[in-house]
């Protein structure tokens, strides 16, 4: 465990050093993050100019969901995406062997391979959106709400990461992965909306199969102080389940990879 903590620090330091080389990226990433957050708010404005409340969500409440979405998008693009895209490159070029030969867990090694620290700018953007939302709602989130939503954030990141691991595992079976990552990105985009806006088949998929609801809507409900305890506990169980499942799938994909090359 100690060894992995040290290894983690080394990997993060390497990424940080690399990022320091490209300081202009800091400005560009900051601007891009603010820009895309601004653009992301437009549909919300448009929808709520015609209705004051949709499926039980007011504008301010829906803004909280968008805030969580921006935050998670930052995590996805800054900490999860870059590492796992390098895995895909490894698989295509056959250099994954070198990673597998290292005396550390392969999933750990590939998941921490690369970070884009400048993307942390979207945390600032997300906080801005939260402030805007609660100013509109005219109240402050409760302390238990904040604590519950932070717990949900951990669950959400774990879920997002597991979904990514599952997507990358598919790279062992499908030759080209670029389009899978693109598909993942466009599906994740729907997490910007409160999940109750989607009904029927789509709603079912977004709650139980690709649990987007769990990533943004439930943390937002927790922050608003209206998340049911059963939903909260169910989400934690689901997150643990997903992580376990992703780990198993990764293990079996790795086995398949080695047997294919030898």
């Amino acid at each position: 465990m100690r060894r992995y903590a040290r290894l983690f620090a080394v990997q993060v330091r390497a990424s940080a050093l690399l990022a320091m080389q490209y300081r202009v990226d800091f400005v560009i990433d900051g601007m891009l993050s603010a820009f895309s957050a601004g653009v992301a708010l437009i549909p919300l404005f448009v929808v709520f100019t015609h209705r004051t409340s949709i499926e039980g969500w007011t504008f301010g409440e829906a803004l909280v969901v968008t805030g969580w979405f921006t935050l998670l998008q930052g995590v996805l693009e800054g900490a999860i995406n870059p590492s796992l895209t390098t895995v895909v490159d490894h698989i295509r070029k056959g250099t994954l062997d070198f990673v597998l030969l290292k005396p550390a867990d392969a999933q750990f090694m590939v998941s921490t391979a690369r970070f884009l620290p400048w993307r942390a700018m979207s945390i600032v953007t997300a906080l801005g959106i939260f402030v805007l939302a609660f100013v509109r709602l005219g109240r402050l989130p409760s302390l238990t709400g904040v604590l519950l939503s932070l717990a949900m954030l951990v669950a959400a990141i774990a879920l997002l990461y597991s979904l990514w691991i599952l997507t990358v595992s598919a790279a062992f079976y499908v030759v080209k992965i670029d389009n899978l990552t693109f598909l993942f990105g466009s599906i994740f985009d729907f997490a910007r909306w409160p999940s109750s806006l989607f009904r029927g088949v789509v709603g079912f998929v977004f709650t139980f199969i690709l649990p987007l609801a769990l990533m943004t809507t439930y943390p937002a409900e927790a922050l608003l102080g209206r998340l049911r305890l059963s939903t909260f506990l169910g989400s934690l169980v689901a997150a643990v389940g997903f992580v376990t499942f992703a780990r198993l799938v990764w293990k079996s994909s790795i086995r398949r990879y080695t047997s294919a090359s030898s």
């Binding site: 499926e55 598909l183 985009d189 989607f198 009904r199």
Partner: peptide
């Protein structure tokens, strides 16, 4: 095709509106 099917997902949202 799946990743360009966003309009089909936006449909229920606008139906809610």
């Amino acid at each position: 095709i799946l990743s360009t099917s966003m309009p089909l997902v936006m449909m229920p949202l606008w139906l809610a509106v």
